[in-house]
């Protein structure tokens, strides 16, 4: 390589780095700065008041509740689905993986809509609910269901590639020696997927806590009852109470940053532990 060529490539290198940093600064950092500066614009006392507001606290509790349910249900599903898909031979495996990914491909608004069409006023399951004296749409169960739906594939998707990369030799050996399925899972499989599983839980938590579209369709916006934190942000914003809206947002921003840090730590651990984990978009 001659000298001018080297100079050129250094110039290109610096230009590309500069371009990337400008892009990320404008697109990702500036929105965070705006949230924090708008939240604190009218002083720290008003900021604290906005966060300690009764409805905001209730919204926070509901968000935590929906997130916990989503993580529990999707953990059970994720472990069973990943295990079934990677450890057994059966027909239409490909179809099953496509079906699991459905919540990924569709708009969150449609995710909310399907529950309205099932359990709502014109839903075919409405009579069953009336008989059981239950309410799903415009009530807390609807919010929980919507949150579970949009995060449904998150955990299984992280575990499946790791298990596929590992192969089944160890499990099959254990089975031939007479170990039960649960014992094989606990002793052989789980130690391999530990970090991927945690990673899935982190992604699931992030999405569940921030879900807006599906929950917005199913909530009915009953203040103090069916309003989650992101919906509380929307309500405050539409009432032109911008400082409060950004104050509540700042809580979510802090949670998002904590999640990102945990995510990075887990990723670091995964690279150390196995190295054959392939990072992919989720």
């Amino acid at each position: 390589m001659n000298k001018t060529n080297k100079k050129e490539s250094k110039l290109v290198r610096n230009l590309l780095i500069l371009l990337s940093i400008i892009f990320l600064f404008i697109m990702l950092v500036m929105p965070l700065v705006v949230v924090l500066s708008e939240a604190l614009q009218k002083g720290f006392k008003l900021y604290i008041d906005a966060i300690q507001d009764k409805y905001t606290m209730k919204a926070l509790l509901l968000t935590v509740e929906a997130t916990v349910f989503a993580v529990i249900v999707n953990t059970v599903f994720g472990l069973f689905a990943a295990w079934s898909i990677t450890k057994y031979h059966f027909k239409r495996k490909r179809l099953l993986t496509v079906l699991i990914d459905i919540p990924f491909a569709i708009s969150p608004i449609i995710a909310g809509l399907v529950f309205i069409l099932t359990f709502g006023r014109i839903g075919w399951a409405k009579e069953i609910l009336d008989f059981l004296d239950m309410k799903i749409v415009f009530a807390v169960p609807g919010i929980i269901l919507g949150t579970i739906f949009v995060t449904f594939p998150f955990i299984s998707r992280e575990i499946i590639p790791v298990l596929q990369a590992q192969g089944n030799d160890q499990e099959e050996a254990a089975a031939i020696m007479g170990a039960s399925a649960f014992r094989i899972f606990r002793k052989v499989t789980f130690p391999q997927i530990k970090w991927a599983f945690l990673y899935g839980i982190v992604l699931c938590t992030a999405r569940a806590m921030g879900e807006f579209g599906a929950v917005s369709v199913l909530s009915g916006h009953l203040r103090g009852k069916t309003v989650t934190l992101p919906l509380q942000v929307e309500i405050l914003y539409s009432e032109f109470n911008f400082t409060a809206a950004f104050a509540v947002s700042s809580v979510l921003v802090i949670l998002a940053i904590i999640i990102l840090i945990i995510r990075n730590i887990i990723e670091h651990q995964m690279k150390k532990a196995g190295g054959n984990y392939v990072r992919k978009a989720s």
Partner: peptide
Amino acid sequence: IELPFALPTAVAGIA
């Protein structure tokens, strides 16, 4: 880079 996955969409929207 992962921020848009972690940040609630409504927050991103108003920001």
